[in-house]
Each structure stands twice: as C-alpha cells, then as structure tokens.
Design a protein around this nucleic acid. Structure first.
Lengths: 152, 152
DNA sequence: AGGGAACATTCGCCGCACCAACAACGATGT
DNA sequence: ACATCGTTGTTGGTGCGGCGAATGTTCCCT
C-alpha cells in the first residue's frame, strides 16, 4: 500500500535536516525501546551497564559524565539496576560522599543479552541502506555528535 | 579544552547507529527548541503551521496524519495556536464531527519568523559538515524516514 | 579554620510519543 | 429504517529522556 497523499508531510519539513534527524531518531528510539523492553530494560540501563563493563566500577557522578545521564535521573536508574541485581551500590570507603557502582556477573550476562537485542534493532533500523551507506551515515553522525559534545 | 578522558562514552555506544541517531537528535532537538522558544513556539506549532500553510485548512485528524502528531496531543497544540491567534478552530458545517483549522494572517507571519529561526538552527546543527556532506546526510535520513514511515 | 567544590538525593517541569475510553456523528449494508 | 462500524474530537494517564533548583553531607585547598 502506497502512502496516501493525505499522509504526506509538508516540504518545509521533509527537507529540513533537524526534522529528519528527530523523526528518524523517534523511529530508532521506538525500536530500541521495544527491543529493550522485551528484556525488561531501557536505554539508561544499557548505557550504564556498557559503561561499567568497559571502564569498571565508578561513582554515580562519573557514570553521569560518561553516559550523559543527569545525576538526578541516575538515582532511579541505579535503583532499577540494583533491584534486578545487575549492579551493586556500595559506599566508597575512601570518599564517603560517593557510592561505588559495580557490575555483577548477572549484569554482564544481561549486557550480552542487550547487545544481541540491539544488533537486531540496528538491522531493522538500517534495513533500507547498504553496508557502505550505513558506514557513511554512522561517520557523519559521529562527526556531528563529536562536534556538539565538545561545544556545550 | 579537549574532552577529558573521564567524559568519553563506551565504544559500545559510540559505534551504535541508534545511539548516534538519538544523541544527535537530542542536540538537534535542544537547538530547535531553544530557537523556537525564543519566538514563543515549539515543535508542534511549526509542524502545524507549515502543514496548514502548504495544504490549506484541515480537520485535526487530517493534520495529525500529516504531521505525525497524535490526536490526543492535537487538542492542546491547537489550543495553544488558537490562544496566540495564529489559527482559527471552527466547526465543519458539512460534517459535524469535525473542526476545521485555518491559519490566520498572523499565523503566516509567525510561520515566516519560525522559518528564519530554523534556518539559523540548521546552520549551527550542521556546522561541521560541508555542503555535500549535508546533502548526503539529508538523503540518507530521508530514505530511512521514508522506509519507516511506510512500514508502520 | 574556613570556604568552596563535589557528590547523592529529592522534587518538579517540559517535550514528545502513545494508549484507553468515551460521546457524538457519519457512512454502509441489509 | 436500523444496527453496525469507522471516524472525530476530547479527556486523562503512561513512559522515556532531558533539565533545573534545593538540600545535606563530605572532601579538599588555602
């Protein structure tokens, strides 16, 4: 079934990069959220587990810096992970302000599960693009992200 | 100032297309929201004004189809536009279920203002890319959006 | 010793997307 | 002519992601 003329967006939008970016991201987000929800997870969980796995135990503030998750949202996210025994929150003996967050073996297993789930999602997400085009897109977006991450 | 090693995201994320898309989109969204807020508008307003300008008066349901705005969110959005006198909501005499939404001259003036604002935003957003690269990115995203818009 | 910075936490807000329910109305088939 | 079904507008609630403000504790530097 073709898209009926009634459903077509105005040209002002269809040519606007910011619109294309936010709309495609909305689709990406939906696919990711569904994929992760099927394994009782959400975006924040993956970001945190991946960060803990790659860099080892860290304070909540340090995790916030790496993941871009706001400190005020971190509390709930860590609670959710701790409830699922994917992570342990312990007071830092060397600095009593901090909590040290550590990934558990269960957390690592869950992370591997999330990886697989996300691989599937990327496939769906990028289905219409060739491998070379996917690389192009990834490169362009990475440069954009890099730029904006540094400039505030 | 270079990005400190402490702030770097895990490689699992930096190479993940869905992550790149949602993160760049977050930056895009922030820039757009700020730009529009400076003229007392938000994303929904632009979508609606642009659609009304290009296709003429329409029912809320029709607008929802074109803009991707949910019917349940449409009410508030139209209220906001009507409050600002950018749009008029009138019952459709030929179908008493419907409201006919019409853009006002004031609405058209505001739309032109939003256009300018968004032009500036695109410039900031795509700053690190050459003109050819911007076209590449736009094309790839358009193809993705096209694909996913059709397949649910 | 004092003052400023960092940390964890709580509360609340916004934007965008989506779902469920409902009442009113229109179109359709029999 | 009537019941059924789909459409429309509206309300209210959910979830995720991102922010800001305010508080209390602890650390660190001068």
């Amino acid at each position: 079934m073709e898209t009926p003329a009634e459903d077509v967006a105005p040209t002002r939008l269809t040519g606007l990069p910011s619109w294309l970016m936010t709309q495609t991201a909305a689709h990406a987000h939906r696919l990711v959220a569904n994929g992760l929800a099927a394994v009782d997870a959400r975006g924040y969980h993956y970001r945190l587990l991946a960060t803990l796995d790659e860099f080892g135990p860290a304070s909540q503030a340090a995790l916030g810096r790496r993941t871009g998750i706001h400190l005020s949202d971190m509390v709930a996210a860590i609670n959710e992970l701790a409830d699922r025994k994917l992570v342990v929150r312990a007071p830092d003996p060397t600095d009593r302000r901090r909590n040290v967050i550590t990934i558990t073996p269960t957390g690592r297993r869950q992370l591997r599960r999330l990886d697989k789930q996300l691989d599937r999602v990327q496939e769906d997400l990028l289905a219409p693009l060739t491998s070379a085009e996917r690389d192009q897109l990834t490169l362009l977006l990475a440069r954009l992200l890099n730029h904006h991450a540094r400039h505030h």
